[in-house]
């Protein structure tokens, strides 16, 4: 890792407008939790927090979306602005550049999603008499791990194509959200499904509440494989990148 790249990328990613926008996104689940507390006489809090708050909103929409924004921006803006030339002509090994960019994107994604989870889940569970601590821990671990996998995939994608954001959107909102529902076999090829399975495994969530198709151990292995594979490809692709090649 390279301190200077980390520092510059962090300053780039936490630009005022972007941070404000993501803070608004983070406010959505918190708002949901408050609304739920105000109107939850006959709903099971544990079930709602697991299935709606975590599976649908946080893991299902917010995490991939935020990871997509940071993952493609970390290196992608350098290509778009033409500053990649200055970065790549420095005597820094390509793997260090990838690692630095990835760490910042991951930290940013994990930070925002963690804040959203840690604030919203207790609000929704509060007063319901349910002990959801293991479930919440499970999801938080899963979110942090999945954030790394998503960021790695999107970072690699941003080296490969200038349209990484759009390809990523198709993956998140068509592949993971629609196609896996129509063809359930595709759940073996979806980071979202892995994170739910991982949360289910670590958080010891009963099968009545969520019943993932992939087992927890398999999901963990697949997440590691995807992360390592994406980082490897990113380093390889960045090594072969040539000026003027941003397709």
């Amino acid at each position: 890792m390279n301190d200077t790249i980390v520092r510059l990328t962090a300053r780039q990613l936490f630009g005022q407008k972007r941070t404000l926008f993501i803070a608004l996104l983070v406010a959505i689940p918190v708002l949901f939790a408050i609304l739920f507390r105000l109107n939850s006489e006959n709903t099971d809090a544990m079930d709602w927090v697991t299935n709606v708050l975590f599976v649908r909103v946080l893991v299902g929409s917010l995490l991939p979306f935020v990871a997509l924004i940071f993952g493609t921006a970390a290196l992608g803006t350098e290509f778009e602005d033409g500053t990649a030339v200055y970065l790549l002509s420095k005597p820094v090994p390509r793997w260090k550049i990838v690692a630095s960019k990835l760490v910042v994107a991951w930290a940013a994604t994990a930070l925002f999603v963690l804040v959203a989870s840690v604030v919203s889940a207790p609000i929704a569970l509060q007063g319901s008499g349910v002990d959801g601590s293991s479930m919440v821990t499970g999801f938080i671990v899963a979110e942090v791990v999945a954030a790394f996998a998503y960021c790695a995939v999107f970072l690699a994608l941003s080296i490969l194509t200038a349209h990484a954001l759009l390809v990523g959107l198709l993956y998140v909102f068509i592949w993971e959200a629609v196609l896996t529902r129509l063809f359930s076999g595709l759940k073996y090829l979806s980071i979202r499904e892995y994170s739910v399975a991982l949360a289910h495994w670590i958080g010891a969530i009963p099968n009545v509440i969520i019943d993932p198709q992939v087992s927890g151990a398999t999901a963990a292995v697949l997440l590691v494989v995807i992360s390592v594979g994406s980082v490897g490809l990113a380093v390889r692709w960045l090594g072969r990148w040539q000026i003027g090649e941003t397709a």
Partner: peptide
Amino acid sequence: RRAYSTVAIIAVLIL
């Protein structure tokens, strides 16, 4: 900036 408006459009339409 292309990336900003793409993200904003998705937020307004899908999220």
